[in-house]
Simulated assay, not measured.
Amino acid sequence: MKVFKLIAVFLILVIIAFSYWIYRSLNTPQAHNNNNQYIQIPRGSSPGQILNKLADEGIISSQIPLKVYLKIKGTGNKMQAGEYQFDSPITPLEVLSELNKGKLRTVKFTIPEGFTRFDIAKRINEQFPQNQPAGENPALKLMNDISLIKDIAPEAKNLEGYMYPNTYNLPRTVATQTIINEMVQEFKKVWKPEYAARALKLKMTPHQIITIASLIETESRFDDERPIVASVIYNRLNKGMPLGIDQTVVYIAKMENRWDGIINKSDLESNSPYNTRRFVGLPPGPISSVSDNSIKAALYPATTNYLYYVLNVEKNDKSHKFYATAAEFERGKAAYQAWLKKERH
């Protein structure tokens, strides 16, 4: 009888000691050498696999305390995949708290106003190279899928103009398709139902409005000037004059993968329907991403008789001077060319 009592007392002492060890282990901060590193927990990892990973990386010294804790609490399924950076020292319970949050390391992905789909695809490849097949950039091919915008612009041939320029915080492992989807969804937040109604009043399709907005975007950086640029575009369209916007020629060179930063004479003579130097009317589609301000300028152009504009050399801030006649424009162009020649020397 005494033997059984002694065994019982011994077992109770063992349980108390073990419980105390578990408690202390769970609440004692432990130092490790990976506080500046991200520990990736893959999606679909089991609690056992997660604890193995943490032990291998030195974040926890023993798996037993957490295994016991998770068994008692039944909360192992709350641990989430993600990329974690653990402080040092840190207690196992604090580690578990972090794992329950599901953290993803994000990348700040910025698309400036006026970026083309070629520029966007290049930036995706630069910032998310680990997500692209070796030697390939699938982004451009994915941008040919117009199913994302068929409700707005069924006649579009690609997503040019419909990927909204903005700064996005994206998971490092994000898929290229997800990046494109997010940019298109951001555009759809900007494109309001009243914009479509206004386009109809102007006897324009939404696709034509976005095309005009892209021309405005590439021509002017000033919000107060954009409605005036829009008026020049509409005035030229109404008179059957070529728009003569050089950025359409730049876009052709980018489409043909030969843009080197300089517009050549051969570029100006291109037979592409995007060449607004040669062909009357709008190009087949947008030539860049567009901001809300450029869309508004395309929808609500200023009322002017201007047909021309040239850079304002007096301000030298990339703003423009506007002209109603060819004679005025030629004088303004001559002043600009004289200034340009002086600057080059």
Score class of each variant (00 low, 15 high):
185 Q>R: 13
125 N>S: 13
344 R>A: 14
75 T>E: 07
191 W>R: 05
229 V>I: 05
165 P>G: 04
11 L>G: 01
262 I>V: 15
58 G>S: 11
230 A>C: 06
260 D>V: 04
76 G>S: 05
38 Y>L: 13
340 L>V: 13
90 I>A: 02
53 K>Y: 11
259 W>R: 11
324 A>N: 00
233 I>H: 03
172 R>T: 10
109 F>T: 15
336 Y>D: 06
112 P>H: 01
17 A>H: 05
319 S>W: 03
36 N>K: 12
111 I>L: 13
326 A>D: 10
336 Y>M: 05
242 P>K: 02
106 T>I: 06
87 D>P: 04
170 L>G: 13
251 Y>R: 00
132 Q>P: 08
269 E>F: 00
78 K>R: 11
56 D>F: 07
246 D>R: 01
94 E>G: 08
180 I>W: 09
277 R>T: 05
323 Y>H: 02
290 V>S: 09
210 I>E: 05
273 P>Q: 02
129 P>H: 10
226 R>I: 00
313 V>F: 04
155 E>K: 15
133 P>T: 12
343 E>Y: 12
267 D>P: 05
191 W>M: 05
29 P>K: 02
265 K>D: 14
73 K>P: 11
331 R>N: 12
165 P>M: 01
117 R>P: 02
136 E>G: 03
77 N>G: 01
129 P>Q: 12
199 A>G: 09
229 V>P: 01
50 I>A: 08
27 N>A: 09
83 E>R: 07
84 Y>H: 08
74 G>Q: 11
243 L>I: 06
64 I>M: 11
95 V>H: 06
188 K>R: 03
125 N>Y: 14
146 I>M: 06
296 K>C: 13
127 Q>W: 13
232 V>W: 04
132 Q>E: 14
238 N>G: 04
46 S>T: 15
93 L>R: 12
139 A>L: 03
276 T>F: 05
171 P>I: 01
126 E>F: 10
83 E>H: 02
235 N>V: 00
212 I>V: 15
224 D>E: 15
224 D>K: 13
169 N>F: 13
62 S>V: 09
236 R>N: 02
242 P>D: 02
287 I>Y: 10
217 E>K: 05
183 M>S: 06
335 A>K: 05
184 V>G: 09
337 Q>A: 09
136 E>R: 12
29 P>N: 08
113 E>A: 08
47 P>D: 08
149 I>F: 09
39 I>L: 14
81 A>T: 06
60 I>N: 07
342 K>F: 07
61 S>I: 05
132 Q>R: 04
134 A>H: 08
76 G>E: 06
287 I>G: 11
282 L>D: 00
198 R>W: 10
